[in-house]
């Protein structure tokens, strides 16, 4: 670990003055962590928009609950507690959960919703059993793994934040490049297949992106609530625009705002996990969007004449 990080006071005077009111309690570390969490929030909103457009908004739920198992397994197998190792384990178990989900649906012919619920419940239970077992045996370094349940962004180091930011930027870059393909498949997969697009591959890429975001979002929101970061911002964004590109951007911004606000709010009181606050911020944005967005918002609709321009 590095020595005590420089505080804001050591920064160029302009920045110090501008950030004056925030100086209390904020260090370089915290700022980098905030920046990292901000990119994660943005990327989660972006990935979630694609999932919502494809009508599978909860696709990350099973992956999210399975991450706990991977975190525990990574710790057990390597003895290390650094974030990259634990998140790597989380990614492996997230992907495994999604594979099991596909297997249950296609080969075991389980109903979709039941399959998701089964994977969620059993994988989370297994993860919990693993973590509890680790703590019960008092393995060194095993305490604190439960931060991954509800999120604990304050524990992020600058290096961790950079890793998260890098993954998030890669996700956003991929979406930017292949945006029109994702939208094509989400809108009309029959047409997409007819013109020769590999719909299955594109869907797999989408699910992979969501899985990555779910894993990357663990420090900010925790396993139980990270799907909210992927689901809520796109729903809110849909209220404001009828263009897919703008919806994507807006969802990213909402996700960013929720992540940053949630993390900041959690510094107000020690012991408050970050996850619930991030989600509550996102929910607040969503409620506001539902109320005041032009054309679709409730307040707006109350004031238009019946049979106005609204679509059926």
């Amino acid at each position: 670990m590095m020595a005590a990080a420089p505080t804001l006071a050591a920064w160029p005077p302009l920045v110090a003055v501008a950030a004056g009111p925030l100086d209390a309690g904020l260090t370089y570390n915290t700022l980098v962590a905030l920046a990292g969490v901000a990119t994660v929030g943005f990327a989660a909103g972006v990935a979630g928009t694609l999932a919502l457009l494809r009508r599978r908004p909860l696709v990350g739920d099973a992956a999210a609950h399975a991450t706990l198992l991977g975190v525990g397994a990574a710790f057990l197998l390597t003895g290390r507690r650094d974030l990259p190792t634990l998140l790597a384990g989380a990614l492996v178990s997230a992907v495994a959960a999604l594979v099991v989900l596909v297997f249950l649906r296609r080969i075991a012919r389980t109903r979709d919703d039941a399959a998701t619920a089964i994977v969620i419940g059993v994988s989370f239970g297994a993860g919990l059993a693993l973590l509890a077992g680790i703590t019960a045996r008092g393995l060194p370094g095993g305490a604190g793994l439960e931060q991954f349940l509800l999120g604990h962004a304050a524990a992020l180091t600058a290096q961790d934040a950079l890793l998260l930011a890098a993954a998030s930027c890669a996700t956003v870059a991929l979406v930017a490049v292949a945006f029109k393909e994702f939208v094509l498949v989400a809108f009309d997969d029959a047409f997409a297949a007819a013109i020769g697009r590999p719909v299955g591959l594109i869907d797999t890429a989408l699910v992979a992106l969501v899985a990555v975001m779910v894993v990357v979002g663990l420090p900010a929101a925790g396993a139980v609530l990270v799907t909210a970061l992927v689901v809520i911002p796109p729903v809110a964004a849909r209220q404001w625009t009828t263009r897919a590109g703008r919806m994507l951007l807006l969802a990213g911004l909402f996700g960013l705002a929720a992540a940053v606000a949630g993390v900041l709010a959690s510094t107000l009181r020690p012991g408050l996990a970050t996850g619930p606050l991030v989600v509550l911020t996102a929910a607040a944005i969503c409620v506001v969007s539902f109320a005041v967005a032009p054309e679709r918002g409730w307040l707006w609709r109350r004031s238009t004449l019946p049979g106005g321009e609204e679509s059926p």
Partner: peptide, 8 residues
């Protein structure tokens, strides 16, 4: 097969 609420 199409979702007409799609933002396009």
């Amino acid at each position: 097969t199409v979702d007409w609420d799609f933002p396009v």
